[in-house]
Design a binder for these strands. Sequence first.
DNA 1: TGTGCTGATTGACAAATGTCAAGGAATGGG
DNA 2: CCCATTCCTTGACATTTGTCAATCAGCACA
Lengths: 197, 197
Amino acid sequence: MKQLFSQIKTYYQTLIPDLQDQAWQKLQEKFTVQNLKKGELLTRNGEVCRQVSFINRGLLRMFYLVDGKEICTGFVKENGYLAQYDSFLTRQASTGNIDALEDCELINLSYDNMQDLYRDEPVFQIFGRKIAEMLFIMISSQTNQLLTLTPEERYKNILEKQAFIIQRVPQYMIASYIGITAEHLSRVRKKMTAKAG
Amino acid sequence: MKQLFSQIKTYYQTLIPDLQDQAWQKLQEKFTVQNLKKGELLTRNGEVCRQVSFINRGLLRMFYLVDGKEICTGFVKENGYLAQYDSFLTRQASTGNIDALEDCELINLSYDNMQDLYRDEPVFQIFGRKIAEMLFIMISSQTNQLLTLTPEERYKNILEKQAFIIQRVPQYMIASYIGITAEHLSRVRKKMTAKAG
DNA sequence: TGTGCTGATTGACAAATGTCAAGGAATGGG
DNA sequence: CCCATTCCTTGACATTTGTCAATCAGCACA
């Protein structure tokens, strides 16, 4: 049988180098496993996000619906952590959605269980802190790029630093992720290949 | 004599309701006070950000220099926390700057001192987590607004939710903060008053 | 009272980006 | 193999936003 929790254990050990067996035992008792088919929603606009999800397998995206159009704000693949984290933290209804771009296997941890862990095993405070710090670093880089780079530069950045997005996400979703339309991205790409070769 | 640490103590107590006197004592021994004149830099492009700053008094901004132009990414006033937090966390050279828009009185906590506190008084892990969570919530809202709102809507949002920025920050800085030029913001504002009145 | 200084506004024009509509390429299911 | 679906590209045109230069308004200060 496959080691369901082997990836997530590695992940936790990276963030908490001195994770003890006992704490890990308590932690994994709280996990629940969820499978999502491509296209299914994980969290929905208007509902409170009640868990964080570790992705064992698959690819998901976060997106908004604005005037009936989807605007993507992030893509996360296997061995990554994912949540509508602002909603999760504030217990407010989420304004965004998450759905599966590929069939997914997730390991979920609920808000209540996480609070219990914070209380009972303070070592997980470190984990919560590092997750928040990591998410902050990721999103602040995204904001800065939106403010300081051109669409072409933002696309090149994805090519260099998040190549899996180029390979596994439809181009029209990438377009909204970098703040432009699908048609415009198509033209930006054309101009890039013209320059390059 | 003024209670130099009264504001920051309140701030910590809000985030850590059961902060004990002993922990607070250890904490305030680590503080250093810094005064900045209007226009002076707190952290500089290319250097590692080595402290987080609580603002006792004054107003600061974070900004980038792109092709010789300043692009503002945030404004923080008295009773707020401020750092080039990505640089602070990663120990990498900061790509942004922070300077004072008004005369400021800051209470600083260095990276090394913060690590000591995390180790010696685990209760501060909670603080570190909540700070990171709060910063994440703030910046994710900013990113989402950049991707989903028009410049006019973003300006209105500042009017409603961060009115101090309108009152205390020059308009041309606000323009770059919402991702447009000063001239364009001027026209957006003109159009708004035309509609309203 | 002038005199700089800083920031805001305006006009004319250019560049970037969006919209709409059509068609083309790849792909998977019957 | 054909068909439907999904996604990408292209063209024509509209809209938004930027650039540059000039001027204006408020304000501190000699």
